[in-house]
């Protein structure tokens, strides 16, 4: 996967030079190891900045809604599904896009890597196809990348881009994970009070910074319900009730649309696994409506369509 960088730069340069796109949305190397930044490039000579590593975990589909230009965009499996969601929801037109698909073997979780070195500063990270070597003051350690993947990448069933105009490498084998929802099932077994305790504990450190919302490609409302002052739907304090209201509503706004890209969890500065909210909804969308978000640009989302045999056992 590490060789993708060169290919990405080559494709981007060609697209800009031939004026097939006005803009490339990709990644550049972060100012710290284990980090990347999103970058928008308009001149072919600046495509050298484009970069690829196992830390390109941001979802670039976040930068698409309502853009007018012709755009070349780098997309992993999950990102491509979010691009499909944007197309279905009329946030961008398919004709505007040149999707540079990246078959993905999973992103490495920088927090899991950081926890290996016990608070010491990682100064350098060197990657090969399978391994990652981290170096710092007085330590050097090599690990297998597959042992330190992001949680959402461990259960990912769609590693290859679902829509693309060009691929940067051969398609990777999709895993036949028998059950990606083990953790959700465990929570489903709990009594209501135990669930409440679990979720209250989960968000107790939340500072309401809204990084999870901002990192999420699904959250593109011009005014988010939490920012609306008149009427004020939810209090702006970190009162546990306000915080819980925010998290419940944020999750439900993603129902049937979430691709479990993990951008929310990666963005959280206090390391809350906010995916525990959305994953239950993903499981329901799959089990009740047979729907996984963003697998096609023709299919309407489950909450936007009606079928006579839709699940309705909860209505009397």
């Amino acid at each position: 996967m590490i060789a993708y960088g060169e290919k990405i730069r080559e494709i981007a340069k060609k697209l800009l030079a031939e004026e097939r796109v006005d803009l490339i949305i990709g990644f550049k190397q972060g100012t710290l190891p284990l980090m990347t930044e999103p970058v928008m490039i308009k001149e072919p000579e600046k495509t050298d900045q484009l970069y690829w590593s196992s830390f390109c975990s941001m979802n670039l589909a976040n930068y698409l809604p309502k853009r007018k230009e012709k755009i070349g965009i780098i997309a992993k499996g999950c990102d491509s599904r979010n691009i499909a969601v944007h197309i279905v929801e009329n946030q961008i037109q398919r004709e505007q896009l040149y999707i540079i698909g990246v078959p993905c073997t999973g992103m490495v979780d920088r927090r899991k890597i950081q926890s290996l070195v016990d608070g010491k500063e990682v100064r350098e990270a060197i990657e090969s196809d399978e391994e990652l070597t981290i170096k710092g003051n007085g330590f050097e350690q090599t690990v297998k990348k597959i042992d330190y993947l992001q949680d959402n990448c461990i259960t990912c069933m769609h590693r290859n881009p679902v829509i693309h105009d060009e691929l940067v490498g051969d398609l990777v084998e999709e895993r036949k994970d028998p059950d990606p929802y083990d953790d959700v099932k465990e929570i489903e077994e709990l009594a209501p009070n135990e669930k409440w305790e679990l979720y209250s504990n989960l968000i107790k450190d939340c500072t309401r910074c809204y990084a999870c919302r901002n990192a999420c490609p699904l959250c593109y409302c011009p005014t988010c319900f939490v920012d609306e002052a008149d009427p004020q739907w939810v209090g702006k304090s970190i009162d546990p009730t306000d915080t819980m209201t925010f998290h419940i509503l944020r999750a439900f706004h993603c129902a049937g649309r979430c691709t479990d890209c993990g951008a929310c969890q990666q963005a959280c500065p206090v390391d809350i696994n906010v995916r525990l909210f959305t994953r239950k909804l993903n499981k329901d969308a799959l089990e009740l409506y047979g729907c996984e978000a963003g697998l096609s640009i023709e299919e309407r989302p489950p909450l936007d369509t009606y079928q006579p045999d839709d699940y309705d056992k909860f209505i009397r």
């Binding site: 305790e197 239950k280 209505i315 009397r316």
Partner: peptide
């Protein structure tokens, strides 16, 4: 996520179904 099931009710009642409305309420 732990909302008590006793507090959550869904029903579909037509405007002509007054007895059902009363019963559900």
């Amino acid at each position: 996520m732990g909302i008590e099931p006793e507090r959550l009710h869904f029903s579909w009642i037509s405007s002509s179904e007054a007895p059902k409305f009363a019963e559900v309420a």
